[in-house]
Amino acid sequence: MLELRLVQGSLLKKVLEAIRELVTDANFDCSATGFSLQAMDSSHVALVALLLRSEGFEHYRCDRNLSMGMNLNNVSKMLRCAGNNDIITVKADDGSDTVTFMFESPNQDKIADFEMKLMDIDSEHLGIPDAEYQAIVRMPSSEFARICKDLSSIGDTVIISVTKEGVKFSTAGDIGTANIVCRQNKTVDKPEEATIIEMQEPVSLTFALRYMNSFTKATPLSETVTISLSSDLPVVVEYKIAEMGYIRFYLAPKIEE
C-alpha cells in the first residue's frame, strides 16, 4: 500500500509541468527514500531525474517498493483539476492497476478523488555516477530561462563557455549571432539573485537549445538553477525543490564530427 500526502500540492503540479514536454510515459518509483522518476526523452539525448524525499511529505507510507507507469500528459490532466492551494494525496494498493489522486481544499470543504489507469512501461534505468565537474554555474533560474528563450530566436544550438571572466552563452543562425556573458556577481541584495561560478578549468560545450528550453519549464520550482559542465559528460541542469529534493536534467552535448 502506498499513501503520500503533500500539503503543498502545487509542487506536484509544477513537477509535472516541468517534465511532460520532455517525456511522454514514465515509471514513478516509490521506496522508503522517496518518490522518484528517471526517464529519457524519445531521442535518448536527454534524461530527467526527479527525487521527492519521503521526509518532505506530511505523511509517507510505502510498504514495499512500487513502480507505477504513467502517461505524463494524463497525470497532468488529473493534477490540473487540483487547486493551487490544495493538499494532494497519491494512493495505490499493491498489485492495483490504478492510482488515485485525492485533492483536499485547504479548509477541507471540498474533497475530490481522481482515479487513473496505470500502464506497463519498459524503461531502462541508467547508472549516473558521481562526477567532478570542470565548472559549476549557479544563477537565477528566470535569467537562464530568458537567455535560452532569447538565443533560440537566433539559432538552434548554444555554446556554453566558462572562463574566469564569466559564463558565455553564444549562438549563431541565418540572421546573425548572439553572445550573452554573465559575470560572477555575489554582491546582490538576495542570495537567489547571485551568479556564482566555481571553475576548476575553462570548459566550452555545445547543446541543442530545444532541450535547454524544455528544461526551463522547471523554472517555477526554484529561484536558482545550477549548471554543471565537464567536457566528457552530459551537462546537468538542476532545479532544487525546496526541502524535498531536486529535478535534474542531463543533456548530451553536440560534438564536432
Binding site: S43, H44, E124, H125, L126, P234, A252, K254, I255, E257
Partner: peptide
Amino acid sequence: TCIQRRILGYFSRT
C-alpha cells in the same frame, strides 16, 4: 557540422 551525442554513450544501463 556537429553531431548530437546520446545519453547512453555516457551512462550505462543498470
